[in-house]
Amino acid sequence: MASSITLIKMPEVVLNKIMNESDLKSILILRKVCHSLRTFVDTHDSGPNLIDLNIYIKPNEIEAWYYTRNGLHVVHYRGRNQENNCVFLHENKEKVLRDMNFVDAFLLDLEIFISLQNSVMRQFRVTRGNADPFQTVKDVNLSLFNRILKALENVLKKRPRPLQTNEIHLAVEDQEQVLSILKSIDAKVLKNLSIYSNLKEEEELEINEIIQMDHWKQAKFLMVEDFILDVPVECLIQFSFVRAVLKTISTKDLMVSKENILQSSIFKEFSLTYTQLEDESEISSVLGEPIITTDIFGRQDFKWIIDSPVNCQKVEITHFQTHRQFKITNIESLEDKVKRMAQERS
Rank of each mutant, 00 (worst) to 15 (best):
V96D: 06
L97Y: 05
R98Y: 01
D99P: 02
M100A: 06
D104I: 15
A105H: 09
A105V: 10
F106R: 12
L107Y: 07
L107A: 08
L107Q: 13
L108H: 09
D109N: 15
L110V: 06
E111L: 02
E111V: 07
I114G: 04
I114K: 04
I114R: 03
I114C: 04
Q117H: 00
Q117E: 03
M121E: 04
R122P: 00
R122Y: 06
F124S: 09
F124I: 10
F124M: 09
V126Q: 03
V126F: 02
T127M: 02
T127L: 04
R128C: 01
G129E: 03
G129R: 00
A131L: 15
A131E: 14
A131V: 14
A131M: 12
D132W: 06
D132P: 05
P133H: 06
P133C: 04
P133Q: 05
F134I: 07
Q135I: 05
T136A: 00
V137M: 08
V137D: 03
V137Y: 03
K138L: 05
K138Y: 03
K138F: 03
V140K: 04
N141T: 14
N141H: 13
L142M: 14
S143T: 12
S143I: 13
S143D: 13
F145G: 14
F145S: 14
N146G: 13
N146L: 14
R147L: 12
I148P: 11
L149E: 12
A151K: 15
A151M: 14
L152V: 15
L152N: 15
V155M: 13
L156K: 10
L156G: 04
K157G: 04
R159M: 06
R159Y: 06
P160S: 00
P160G: 02
R161P: 09
T165Q: 05
T165G: 05
N166G: 08
E167G: 05
E167P: 00
L170Q: 10
A171R: 08
A171M: 09
A171S: 07
V172E: 10
V172T: 13
